[in-house]
Design a protein around this nucleic acid. Structure first.
Lengths: 118, 118
DNA sequence: CCGTATCCCGGCGGATACTG
DNA sequence: CAGTATCCGCCGGGATACGG
């Protein structure tokens, strides 16, 4: 999971990403991050719940992507120490503010797919 | 540059990107695409002009990213066959509609950088 | 001026097996 | 249930040199 102490708070984004656009892109462009944020923007969810809702993702990748989103202050993780334990994932306040972006990307993507030819 | 005839028009995005969000993310998340779109949304520009405006990019990468954006119907390329030749890059109509997204990503990125700690 | 052609490397992400 | 641990292949992207 790389170095969590890199001069940019506890977050994974490197210092050299000085451009806010690049920064945002970097944070949301993991392979499964879009759909994870999308799901969590509707409701918080547990690990296996996310796994069920995201067809094709492996446990490993789900963990990795969630850890990165967590390090980037987009997702928060709440552990309930029961047996078996429950882990609840949800968006942070900052993460929720990503929704308009995801939303406009959906709109653009739909239009793109409709046109489909240049 | 890969297969341009992949069942999705002449565009580079694969068929399996059925999700419009993933699609959009895929189209704009090349390393230099954000800044290229950003620049071209203000004014069209020639190849070397872009190269000057984007510190650190190589000719090879500039070409590659422009070609992909072109294949994805975001950028258009106009060749003037003078000697030496001039090539003018600009956004397509579809490409211009990306601007609000880039713009909101900049806003979010700025806020992210301001907070910086979770 | 506007590109290709090569070569090469790191790291993202897949498959699979194991654990508190 | 919610994760780690390994191993490994692919490809995005850098450096450099050459071409119309």
């Amino acid at each position: 999971m790389g170095n969590r102490l890199n001069g940019f708070g506890a977050c994974s984004a490197e210092v050299k990403k000085a451009c806010p656009v690049e920064m945002t892109l970097h944070i949301i462009s993991g392979k499964w991050k879009g759909i994870i944020i999308d799901i969590l923007s509707h409701k918080s969810a547990r690990f296996n719940e996310l796994k069920r809702l995201i067809p094709g993702i492996t446990q490993r990748m789900l963990t990795l992507q969630l850890r990165e989103l967590e390090a980037d202050c987009v997702v928060k993780r709440k552990v309930e120490n029961t047996v078996p334990k429950k882990v609840e994932y949800s968006l942070t306040e900052l993460g929720e503010k990503l929704y308009p972006i995801i939303s406009s990307m959906r709109i653009w993507g739909n239009e793109y797919m409709k046109i489909n030819k240049c």
